[in-house]
Simulated scan of single mutants.
Amino acid sequence: MGRILWLVIIVLIALWVIGLVANIGGGLIHTLLVIAGIIFVIQLITGRRSI
């Protein structure tokens, strides 16, 4: 589960940067990035990191 989460976070950050540069994607990418960040922080706090 941890590897998939990291993959999702990396993809969302890449899409977010592309969205900022090209002004495409709008709020969807930003919303998904925030959701991924919240999941990451929750996983960090609960100690479920498998890296």
Rank of each mutant, 00 (worst) to 15 (best):
G37M: 13
I4W: 14
Q43V: 10
L5F: 08
V17N: 06
G47M: 14
W6D: 07
I51Y: 15
R48N: 13
A14V: 12
S50N: 14
V34I: 14
M1Y: 10
I29C: 04
L44R: 14
I38Y: 00
R3I: 15
L28R: 09
I42F: 03
G25A: 05
A36P: 14
R48P: 05
L20F: 03
L5R: 13
G37H: 05
T46D: 15
I18E: 02
G27Q: 06
L12P: 03
L44I: 11
W16C: 01
W6I: 12
N23L: 06
M1N: 10
M1L: 07
I29D: 03
L15P: 07
V11I: 09
L15I: 04
I38G: 02
G2C: 04
A22K: 03
G19H: 06
L20D: 03
G27P: 07
A22V: 12
W6R: 12
I29F: 01
L28G: 09
I4S: 10
H30S: 15
L12F: 09
R3P: 11
G2Y: 03
L7Y: 15
I42C: 05
G26E: 09
L33I: 06
V8K: 04
A36T: 15
G25V: 02
S50Q: 14
I13Y: 04
I42A: 13
G25D: 03
V41E: 07
L15R: 09
A14N: 02
A14G: 08
L20Y: 00
L28S: 11
R49Y: 11
G47K: 07
V21G: 02
V11S: 01
N23D: 13
G37F: 08
G25P: 06
L28C: 07
I29K: 01
W6L: 10
G19C: 06
I13H: 01
L5M: 09
V21P: 04
T31I: 13
R48A: 13
L44S: 10
I38A: 11
I10F: 15
R48W: 14
R49M: 07
V17T: 09
L7E: 10
I45F: 13
N23I: 09
S50K: 15
R3E: 11
R49W: 13
G2I: 08
S50W: 15
R48V: 06
T46V: 12
I24D: 08
S50C: 06
A22H: 02
V8R: 00
N23A: 12
N23H: 07
A14H: 00
I4R: 08
I24E: 09
I9L: 10
V11C: 06
T46W: 15
I42H: 08
W6M: 10
T46H: 15
H30A: 15
I35F: 15
I35H: 13
V8Q: 02
I29S: 05
I51M: 14
V34T: 10
V17S: 00
